[in-house]
Design a protein around this nucleic acid. Structure first.
Lengths: 341, 341
DNA sequence: CGCAGGGGCTAGAACGTTCTAGGATCGGTC
DNA sequence: GACCGATCCTAGAACGTTCTAGCCCCTGCG
């Protein structure tokens, strides 16, 4: 069999190949590759050179197989959700210094959460970080029996040991938004909600409570929305038709708010002149200069750090806590809110 | 050592455990788990039952280690790019029927392409599918020496064996957009380009060529843009200040076009009344009812299928082709284009 | 001179699979 | 009664690492 350099199935070089070339044992090569102590300076250099020559690259899977620990965190996220993208970015950043690797598994059309989680478990992830999971609580609890699980942005009522939660205080966020609007002089404030999305119930409740507290129970108006622009737009069309029109709208999230904004602009309703609009998440979208959305900010880097922190703590031997980290939201005032006419 | 059901480091059950419980050999269990032939119906059922009892789950890594093939495709994508999200969705869909798994590796702030690719290779992916890679061509060629590589949406000039390309005919797409606008009666058509983004050069060229062909060389106007809303918005502000204003704008992609649209709307410039706008990609964004953007559609499912197809073909023994699949774009006329005043 | 201690290295057993060779057992055929 | 072919099953060697012992040789100390 001739040895072509880039043969179709040229087996990639292994420890043994490097060892042979450097004239040492595989164990020694392993030591050098891991940068562990127990090798002399001269041989170390010789081994590294041999590895370089051969284009050697350690096989992560074999490595994981052998060592008890995999130091792998499985992350399930929604492929089409910018908020999740931001979280994943934060998780990458938080996991590295802790010495953990990330395995991504996307939820998309035709690939449900079940599938996503299956592959993560099959890959030997030591813990799971689920972003806004929609699976029934019972299913999550079952999972938590097998492996530490952290649910991000999805609150869970009945606490199960091993199933921890990291989330923003959604009700508090909605309250802040309402307070801000009331402070500006608004009274007729509508809420375009998120239906059954994670966090939606809390935001709805926070909105209601805040309205009541301001003595505005008569003005409570909740419209069916969702987490996409389309759903926001549909709700906005409903609002335009309504009499009296509200003077302010709190949307479930930024995407939803964008849909609302767009319908308003196209109908000649000025924002914030005629109607104020508030979003939720402070995702990339809201920060764009030309959208410039007042929104309830979630502290995404913090959420990511806490999620990773909890998972790691569990893996490093800490007790399975039935805990919850609740991160305070912070209203970010930008250009879509002002005093009513 | 007491056997608590959910012990912190309860070792997950292995083939051997299942074998012991079912009273057979590990080899037999392996056969049953893979659904291979060579086991009797009765024992098969007994083994499955034992596996269920123990909550056994095959270890993907050990499996991969043993079998020569990993049947794993590594996919590098931009975490913040909706176009990539759509592609990934298509890739998942295409890979499954072919019997391949997907490993995702994201490019994000603080995690460059280098890192992304490293982890994919360490995970023993058999081939790489890179979505809109920005790495220098030389680097990609080097990679292709180690493993089959498919570059999606990024054209590469000097063909390297083992480095294949799947892309949309970007120049043709720009031409279609210009033809459409000219057909409506426009003459003063500007292009907000994508700078050095993959595909930008071709779209620029296509625009120029088409303008020339229509005898509109005098009206050629290329503005520096980019692939985000912000860059589109900045360019749009420039256009508003210009005299004469163009009557139509072709933007580099949909996000860029959204930025353009938004600035126009806010300035009281109506679309398509005063100015027509065309995007590129036909991503989710453009399809949203409230954006309703005329755009050059990329056939995303097809791109995904071709990319997977090429990778798989290489792996199933076909020769390393220095090929290129060029997919025809298709103009999708929606609400942002009309005849000039 | 004997021997503890340590640095540098290696042999060989894991890890949890799959794969290659078979080994039984059974029914049937010459 | 020897042989065949199927069918069901098992033993044991991979796969590419890491880890545990332990060997060898040197140095320094009593």
């Amino acid at each position: 069999m001739p040895e072509t350099p880039a043969a179709p199935d040229a087996k990639r070089p292994t420890l043994a190949d490097v060892a042979a070339r450097a004239g040492v044992s595989t164990a020694l090569v392993s030591i050098v590759m891991r940068d562990a102590k127990g090798a002399g300076a001269a041989t170390r250099e010789r081994v590294l050179q041999a590895a370089r020559d051969l284009g050697y690259r350690p096989d992560a899977r074999a490595r994981l197989l052998r060592s008890r620990r995999s130091r792998l965190l499985g992350v399930q996220f929604g492929l089409q959700q910018p908020f999740h993208a931001d979280l994943v970015e934060g998780i990458y950043a938080a996991a590295e210094p802790a010495g953990y690797q990330i395995a991504l598994s996307a939820v998309a059309a035709g690939r449900g959460e079940q599938r996503a989680v299956e592959t993560l478990l099959a890959d030997r992830c030591e813990a799971l970080v689920l972003l806004g999971p929609q699976a029934p609580a019972a299913r999550l609890a079952e999972l938590a029996g097998q492996v530490p699980v952290v649910s991000v942005a999805r609150r869970l009522r009945s606490p199960v040991p091993g199933l921890e939660v990291v989330r923003t205080a959604d009700d508090e966020g909605a309250r802040q938004a309402v307070d801000h609007l009331v402070g500006l002089g608004h009274r007729d404030i509508a809420h375009v909600d998120g239906g059954r999305a994670p966090g939606a119930a809390d935001r709805r409740r926070g909105y209601r409570t805040a309205m009541n507290r301001h003595g505005l129970s008569g003005h409570i108006r909740v419209l069916a929305g969702g987490l996409t622009e389309e759903e926001g737009a549909a709700a906005a069309r409903g609002l335009l038709a309504a009499r009296p029109r509200p003077t302010a709208v709190l949307a479930f999230n930024d995407r939803c708010a964008t849909g609302v904004l767009d319908v308003f602009l196209r109908s000649g309703v000025t924002v914030p002149g005629d109607i104020s609009v508030v979003g939720f998440d402070d995702s990339h979208l809201a920060r764009l200069a030309h959208i410039d959305l007042t929104t309830v900010g979630q502290d995404i880097p913090r959420l990511a750090r806490l999620a990773v922190g909890r998972a790691v703590a569990r893996l490093e031997g800490e007790e399975a806590a039935t805990g919850e980290d609740v991160v305070a939201p912070r209203l970010v005032v930008r250009g879509t809110t002002a005093a009513p006419r």
